[in-house]
Simulated assay, not measured.
Amino acid sequence: MTAAVDVRARLVDRLEASGVLTPGWRQAFLDVGRHEFLPDVFWASTGDGYERCDRARSPERWLELAYSDVAIVTQWDDGTSSGQQREPTSSVSMPTMVASMLRDLDVHEGHKVWEGGTGPGWNAGLLARRQGAHNVVTVELDAVVAAQAAANFRALDIAPTAVVGDAAHGYLPGAPYDRGILTCSVRHVPPALIGQIRRHGVLVLPFAPLFGGGAVARLTVTGTTVTGTTATGPFTGSSAFMRMRQQRYQAPPVDDYLPGDWPGDAVREYTTLNPLNVVDDWLASFVVGLAVPDLYYRRSNNGGSGMTTLWLFDTGVTSWATVDFVDGASRFEVRQSGSRRMWSEVEDTVRWWTAAGRPGFERFGLTLEGGEHRAWLHQPANPLPSPRGQD
C-alpha cells in the first residue's frame, strides 16, 4: 500500500468514525485522492495561521497536510499576489466540512448535481465518482483556477461538465437539477440558484451575513409563485468559507457617514454589553447578522491606550455608531447618529437571543421567496423579530 493510499484510508476511517461521512460516500473518498487536487506549494490553515508547504522540500509533511482535517489555500488575492498574501481566494475545504455538506446534499442514484465554485476540483471529483460524471456540472469564475481543475480532472480521467462562468447565475443549459451545492459563502442567495433546482430538490450552501459568522444552509425548493421560486430550510452547523467574489462588500468611506470631525451630532450613551463579546463570538455575530442584514462593522485599536473602538454602519449610509471597549470596564461608551440606532439594534438582538436561551446554529433557518430572505428560529412560521429602528 502506497503512502498516499494509506493516509487516505486513515482519513476516511476518521471521517466515518466521527459520523460526518455517510456510508454511501466512503468509496468515493477512497477512490478520489485529495492530494491529487493540490499544487506542489500550498498554505495549510493549521490554527496558528497559514503554514506554507513545498512538496519538493518536504514531501512527507506535504502529504500529511494533504490528508489532515485542515483547509488548504491554493490561491491568494485572486491570483494577483506577489509574495504579500492578504486574502485567500481559492482553496480545498476541510475534509470534515466537505463530507458534512455532501451528507446534507443527500444525493441519490441518478440525481443531477450542480456545483458552484469548482476550485481545484476535489468536491466535483467526489460528486462525479458517486453520481457519474455525466450527472455533475461544476462552475468556476476564475479562468486560471478552472484550468487547474480541468487539468486535475484529465489526470484522473474524470469528466464532469466543467464551465468557466459566474456561479451566481447557475448554469441554465444543464437545468433543472436535483441537487445544488455552493462552495463559497453568500450573504444573499442568488435567485438563479434555487430557480434551477427541481421542486423538492435541495440546495446546500454556506450563508454568511455581512456582520459576521456563518453557517451551512440546507434549503428545499418548495414551489414557484408569481415572484419566483421559493425555498426554505435549516442551518446545519457553523461554517467559514470565502465570500463569493460578486458579493464582497466595498464599504463607503467613513466621511460619507460622518462629514466633519467625530463625534459630530452623535448622542453619547453607555452600555453594559461588551462589544467584543459580540463580534468575537462566531454564533453571536451570526445571529446579529441574521437580524440586521444591512449592518457591518470596523474595529480600530487606539494606539497604546488599551482601548478598542467598534464602528458600526448601515449599508444605506444613513446611520453609524461607535462603542469603546476598555479592558476591565463594566460599562462602555456609545455614540450613535442617524435615523437608526445601530448599537441599540445589536443590543436588542443579543437581548432577544439571550432570553431565548442562546440557541445554536441548528435552531435557525432561512426562507427565500421573491428574492427576499427571511431568517427564523425553530420553524419558518417564527421569523426573527426586527430590532428598534428597522421598518
Rank of each mutant, 00 (worst) to 15 (best):
T367D: 02
G125E: 04
W282I: 03
D157F: 00
A175M: 04
D6F: 10
D54V: 10
W122Q: 00
H134P: 00
L210C: 02
R14A: 13
L210I: 08
D166P: 02
E60I: 08
A146E: 01
T2I: 11
E347F: 05
V278G: 14
R341T: 06
M101S: 13
L63W: 14
T96E: 11
A240Q: 07
V20K: 10
G116H: 03
F286K: 06
P275T: 09
D13G: 13
L366D: 10
R154E: 11
D261S: 08
H108P: 08
A9E: 13
A71H: 00
G264A: 03
Y177C: 10
G180M: 15
F29C: 13
S81A: 15
V189D: 07
A146D: 02
V334N: 08
L30H: 13
S81P: 15
L290F: 02
F42N: 14
P383R: 06
A3D: 13
S68A: 15
T96H: 15
L219C: 05
S330Y: 00
L258P: 03
G212Q: 06
G304A: 15
W320G: 02
G119D: 01
W76K: 08
Q247C: 03
M101A: 09
A159N: 06
P190L: 09
P252R: 14
Y257T: 08
V113D: 10
R374L: 08
V288Q: 09
G316K: 12
A44L: 07
Y67D: 07
V186A: 08
P380K: 04
V204I: 13
A4E: 15
R55L: 12
K112S: 12
T2W: 08
L11A: 12
D327G: 13
P259K: 02
P234Q: 06
L30V: 06
F37R: 01
L273Y: 07
V145Q: 05
P176Q: 01
L30A: 10
F29Q: 13
P191Y: 00
G357P: 07
Q75V: 01
P95D: 09
L210R: 12
G316N: 11
C184N: 11
Y296L: 14
Q148G: 14
D13K: 06
E64K: 09
E345T: 03
A381N: 10
A128Y: 00
A147P: 05
G303V: 10
G316T: 12
W62L: 01
M1S: 14
S239V: 04
V323C: 03
P263M: 04
R14N: 07
P275W: 14
D6R: 15
S100I: 09
A159E: 08
A251Q: 01
V287L: 07
A381M: 05
N152H: 15
W43I: 06
W62K: 07
H169A: 13
D31L: 12
A99C: 02
L290N: 03
W353A: 10
N302E: 15
R218G: 06
D166W: 02
E269R: 10
I72R: 15
H35I: 07
Q246E: 12
K112D: 06
H111K: 12
